[in-house]
Amino acid sequence: MRHDSSIVEFQRKRGGDSAAFFVPFLASDMILLDAGCGPGTITAALAGIVGTAVGVDIEPHAIVAADRLASTSGLTNLAFVEADMTALPFGDETFDAVFFHAVLYHQDGAALTRTLAEARRVLKPGGVIGTRDADVGGNILHPELDGVRLALDLWQRWYEHDDPEALLFGRRQSSLLRARGFTPIWSSAGYVNHSADATSRSEAVADARRSLLGLGPQLVSKGLATDGEIQAALAGWDAWGADPDAVYFRCRCECVARKD
């Protein structure tokens, strides 16, 4: 999975709502692992529910931000470790719960298998795994401007999905977990609303511009995009943000499974 500081910055706005579906399966005496924790906002929210919460991320920028959050949060049961989720630095059966938010979707088949094998290894018998990830087939966008569609495509190019079904990852989480030794016990879906009001639309445009400007030179240097495409994508988001009736609801599918 590729990482970039602009993506980490975008992830800062994730919060407790992203893990709300998992909360009913947690208890105050649990030790929880948030794999691919980014800047740690979800990990911190979960630390208020469980006994101990540990976040891991391979991106140093993310761990720096997460450590800063931990030092100012006042939480004493929160820790972050720079690590690869395909080779976790923890012993067998260490955690009662493992959580993945918006990370599995980006992995190819081999990396996904390694990641979930590691999650199963560090999870205690009877422990739970929660996953929440994207499914572009459920996204709702209006108006469907070419520039915004191009921007969404540019982000997909950045992750270089080899499997076209990766874009529909969210709806397949249950079957993917079952195939890797877990027993799914709950599933649902929700939306991230980027257009609740004028302020949220403005923030969505600012986030999109920051990401495109940060990734643009790297996309161009790797031959994944042209300067013209980057500019067209930026213009598309500007036009979308100027429409007072514009909407963008990003679909997230959710699944909870158990290690029997």
Rank of each mutant, 00 (worst) to 15 (best):
D34V: 02
A117V: 12
L167P: 05
L116W: 10
V56A: 11
C251T: 10
G236S: 10
C37H: 03
S211R: 11
R252A: 10
A189F: 11
V205R: 00
D34M: 03
V50D: 14
R209H: 14
D197T: 09
L145T: 08
G126C: 07
P24S: 07
A166G: 12
D260R: 15
Q218L: 14
A119M: 13
G48E: 11
R120G: 05
G40R: 01
R252F: 07
I31W: 15
R14F: 06
R114W: 14
L152S: 02
G236P: 01
A206L: 04
A35M: 15
W158K: 07
H101P: 00
G38V: 09
R14A: 08
D207S: 11
W240V: 14
A83W: 11
C251E: 07
D207T: 05
F95P: 00
Y191N: 02
G181R: 06
P39M: 07
I49V: 14
G170S: 04
A225P: 00
E160C: 01
A206N: 12
A151R: 04
A225V: 11
A79E: 15
K259N: 08
L78V: 12
S18I: 00
L78R: 06
V50P: 04
S5F: 08
E144C: 12
T131P: 02
A166H: 03
A111Y: 09
A87P: 01
A45E: 03
E144H: 08
G55S: 10
H161V: 09
S200F: 15
D197R: 06
H161S: 13
G38M: 06
R180N: 11
M85N: 03
A239I: 09
S187H: 02
L32D: 00
E254P: 07
N77G: 12
I140Y: 09
A134E: 10
T41N: 14
C251M: 05
F99T: 00
L32G: 04
R157A: 05
F10Y: 05
A242H: 15
R172M: 08
Q173Y: 06
Y105A: 02
A97S: 11
L145D: 11
L154T: 01
F99V: 12
T226Y: 05
D146G: 09
V54T: 14
A62C: 15
